[in-house]
Amino acid sequence: MTSRHAADDASRPTIPTRQLGATGITAPAIGIGCWAIGGPDDNLGMPMGWSTGANEDESLTGLEKAWECGARLYDTADVYGHGKSERLLGRLVAQVPRKEIVLASKVGYCAGTAEHGFEPRHMRRQLEQSLDNLKTDHLDIYAFHHPNFGTDDRWLQPAIEAMRTFRDQGLIRAIGMRGPHRFALDRLTTPPDHRGDKVARFKALFDKIEPDVLAIRDNLLTPSAQSDGIFSFADQQNVGILISKPLGQGLLTGAYRPDTQPTFGLGDHRLRKRWFQPDAIEIIDTGLNHLRAIVGTRTEDLISVALWACLDRSPNAIALAGFTSPDQVAMNLRSLNPRPVLEKIAAARKIMTEVQKQLDATGETILPSQPCDERHLPSTQN
């Protein structure tokens, strides 16, 4: 590719290759998460984007930098900036050999004027728009973005049939779904003791959807018992795994300091997240200080142990590292080498597990930071 940021092979980080289960899709073990480059956004009456980060030129530079450093899998969604993220990624796709890049997107959270985000005709329209945005004729992975299929799962079977049709028609190669996950609106409006068992819900959906790839949120702040179970399940089913938030959206890199109040603008999902509040950041920073004493004091040291703690979960897993600047992309990929010894990864898990327990003890992780306007909600997504 022609780029403003050419890198020779000698300077390219060494990234191990992974295969996503039985899909036949292979890619370097670190992929690029493209949520943040969608910018600030609102959906379902809530902030759902990122208010801080690069402008469009810097975002494109970051995508190009990732390619030059060896990343090949890029993950986005129709709702990230309501198409902005996909369109930016499409500018990279136009520059590189299509057969060498793995493209993943998602559907469901962007309902538009449809009755529901998983109404099949709406799904087809969204897929066609995503293909246009990404400047391609097919997606490698197309995923259900959430587990809400309407009242009494009205849209579940029609949505499954639509996905399988897309795959049969060659518009997508693999069907994806989230691991245990709550619909964003439920996390905000439903008391914890009324939400139901998300693991049981996931397994029921898994049996019906029969996905090829799972998107699993995992990082050093995720309880090990929870992670061990879902990764073991995925390996038993021989499905591919995309790990989201491996760096805790910057919380595990030391990007947030207790002596500096973080500022999030309108349309930033962190406005409603408990762990981005000052008291939680202080708890995390204390844990990171203990971790630095073991793995090293550089940001790269923290990134390395966080990424490898995720990659060690499964040989079928690729971790998705997001970015808000080109420098972050280069640092994340460069930090894979050298690989931390197993003892340091185990120590990191032990330290941050205690941090996670302290965070849970402080209360709910979702803050109703702004009222939810029910006029903006699809009638079937209650």
Results as ranks from 00 to 15, higher is better:
residue 24 G to V: 03
residue 24 G to S: 00
residue 29 A to Y: 05
residue 30 I to E: 04
residue 31 G to W: 09
residue 33 G to P: 08
residue 34 C to D: 01
residue 36 A to L: 02
residue 36 A to G: 05
residue 37 I to V: 08
residue 37 I to G: 01
residue 38 G to N: 08
residue 39 G to H: 12
residue 43 N to E: 09
residue 43 N to F: 04
residue 43 N to D: 10
residue 43 N to W: 03
residue 43 N to T: 07
residue 44 L to V: 05
residue 44 L to M: 10
residue 47 P to V: 02
residue 48 M to A: 11
residue 49 G to E: 09
residue 53 G to Y: 11
residue 54 A to N: 14
residue 56 E to V: 04
residue 56 E to Y: 05
residue 56 E to G: 07
residue 57 D to S: 10
residue 58 E to L: 12
residue 58 E to D: 10
residue 59 S to H: 05
residue 60 L to W: 13
residue 61 T to G: 08
residue 62 G to E: 12
residue 63 L to M: 07
residue 64 E to H: 03
residue 65 K to W: 11
residue 66 A to E: 12
residue 67 W to P: 01
residue 69 C to T: 00
residue 70 G to F: 09
residue 70 G to I: 10
residue 71 A to S: 06
residue 74 Y to Q: 12
residue 75 D to K: 02
residue 75 D to F: 09
residue 76 T to S: 15
residue 76 T to L: 06
residue 77 A to I: 01
residue 77 A to G: 02
residue 78 D to T: 09
residue 79 V to Y: 02
residue 81 G to P: 11
residue 81 G to T: 05
residue 82 H to W: 13
residue 82 H to S: 05
residue 84 K to W: 07
residue 84 K to Y: 03
residue 85 S to W: 01
residue 88 L to I: 13
residue 88 L to P: 01
residue 89 L to I: 10
residue 90 G to P: 14
residue 91 R to N: 11
residue 92 L to Q: 04
residue 92 L to E: 06
residue 94 A to H: 04
residue 98 R to Q: 13
residue 98 R to S: 12
residue 98 R to L: 09
residue 103 L to C: 08
residue 106 K to E: 11
residue 107 V to Y: 10
residue 108 G to Q: 05
residue 109 Y to C: 12
residue 110 C to N: 14
residue 111 A to I: 09
residue 112 G to I: 01
residue 112 G to L: 00
residue 113 T to R: 14
residue 114 A to S: 07
residue 114 A to G: 03
residue 114 A to F: 05
residue 115 E to G: 15
residue 117 G to A: 10
residue 117 G to T: 10
residue 118 F to Y: 15
residue 119 E to G: 07
residue 120 P to E: 00
residue 120 P to W: 01
residue 120 P to D: 08
residue 122 H to G: 06
residue 122 H to Q: 03
residue 124 R to E: 15
residue 124 R to M: 11
residue 125 R to A: 15
residue 127 L to V: 09
residue 127 L to K: 12
residue 131 L to E: 06
residue 133 N to S: 07
residue 135 K to S: 15
residue 136 T to H: 13
residue 136 T to Q: 13
residue 137 D to T: 04
residue 137 D to P: 00
residue 138 H to T: 10
residue 140 D to I: 07
residue 141 I to S: 02
residue 141 I to P: 12
residue 141 I to H: 06
residue 142 Y to C: 00
residue 142 Y to H: 01
residue 143 A to V: 08
residue 143 A to E: 10
residue 144 F to L: 00
residue 145 H to Q: 13
residue 145 H to L: 02
residue 146 H to V: 02
residue 147 P to V: 08
residue 147 P to Q: 01
